[in-house]
């Protein structure tokens, strides 16, 4: 379990980094937190000739939150995002989800952007980015471009990023309207990759009726799956909606595989149960958030 030989690069600026990537081309691999890449190297499942360590690019070590969303730089660790109060205030789903990502020691080292660039279909953050229809920003020597999550993820462990491109940031937009979000999953052990996990957004109208219900899933397909489940519950009151119908709708649309930890039938069952539970909880949060916001708006100077 020792990696094959490679040439190690440690650029000091983003410009230098993309210059190195351009030079080494497909023979290069970016190293950030290393929580996925280093095991692959040690097991010789990956043997890039060049390793471009971006840990000196401190310009990319940021989390920026405003009313529109949260932008995470390539060197922000999961723990930075998890603990960022401003990010939590506008988008609590990030912290709620990150608590399910591995263990604190791994979150202290692993980067949120790195896990998205790795595009593991079992990665929670890839699903959240897809759920929120977020964007990914890439830099190369030729310039910068921003793509949607849907365009970015092209298959299991594969993205549209070119060999000469560095993912510099991702943006998680705040969903519009009165919304509640939830992440829930079942894992074999605390912190393991989920057997099935789902993140949901429920949107309520002014009368607290369901206007939208979307869910994203991990570990049930080759890439993040996002389902619009609104049709099962549209117009129903937030506390009386037929959430199990939405769960059944989701289960019917997913086509997971068997693996050594669970059968496809079990994963489908989990998707149904977790979808039902998460949507019900998210609707409650949306209603509660609305109530809390109204109370704050009307009772500011009591």
């Amino acid at each position: 379990m020792k990696p094959a030989g490679f040439t190690y690069h440690r650029p000091a600026t983003v410009d230098d980094a993309v210059a190195v990537l351009a030079e080494v081309g497909p023979a290069g691999k970016v190293l950030a937190g290393g929580q996925s890449l280093v095991p692959l190297l040690n097991m010789r499942l990956a043997a890039p000739e060049h390793l471009v360590d971006v840990n000196r690019l401190s310009d990319l070590a940021y989390v920026r939150a405003d009313g529109d969303g949260v932008t995470v730089g390539a060197l922000a660790r999961h723990a930075d995002v998890e603990r960022d109060e401003a990010a939590y205030a506008v988008l609590p789903l990030l912290r709620d989800t990150l608590r399910h990502v591995a263990h604190p020691t791994i979150r202290n080292r692993g980067t949120t952007v790195g896990s998205i660039a790795h595009a593991d279909p079992a990665g929670e953050l890839t699903a959240v980015l897809a759920l929120l229809a977020g964007t990914v920003t890439l830099r190369s020597a030729a310039g910068e471009r921003t793509v949607t999550a849907a365009d970015f993820f092209t298959g299991p462990m594969s993205t549209c990023a070119g060999a000469a491109e560095l993912v510099t940031s991702v943006t998680f937009p705040v969903p519009e309207g009165r919304t509640g979000t939830v992440w829930t999953e079942v894992a074999r052990r605390h912190g393991d990759y989920a057997v099935c996990g789902t993140g949901v957004v429920v949107t309520l109208d002014d009368d607290l009726r369901v206007a939208g219900a979307r869910a994203a899933y991990v570990s049930v397909g080759p890439e993040p799956v996002v389902l619009d489940l609104t049709e099962a519950v549209a117009g129903e009151m937030h506390d009386a909606a037929d959430w199990p119908a939405a769960g059944r709708l989701a289960a019917g649309r997913l086509d997971p595989d068997d693996d050594i930890h669970a059968t496809a039938a079990y994963r489908t069952r989990l998707a149904e149960v977790l979808t039902t539970r998460a949507l019900r909880e998210a609707a409650g949060r949306a209603a509660g958030a609305t109530t809390a916001a109204r109370r704050e708006a009307s009772g500011g100077d009591q």
Binding site: V186, R188, V195, H261, A262, T263, A265, Y266, R269
Partner: peptide, 11 residues
């Protein structure tokens, strides 16, 4: 026995 195994037994 895993949760998946238990689910299969129930089925």
């Amino acid at each position: 026995i895993s949760p998946s195994d238990l689910y299969s037994l129930r089925l």
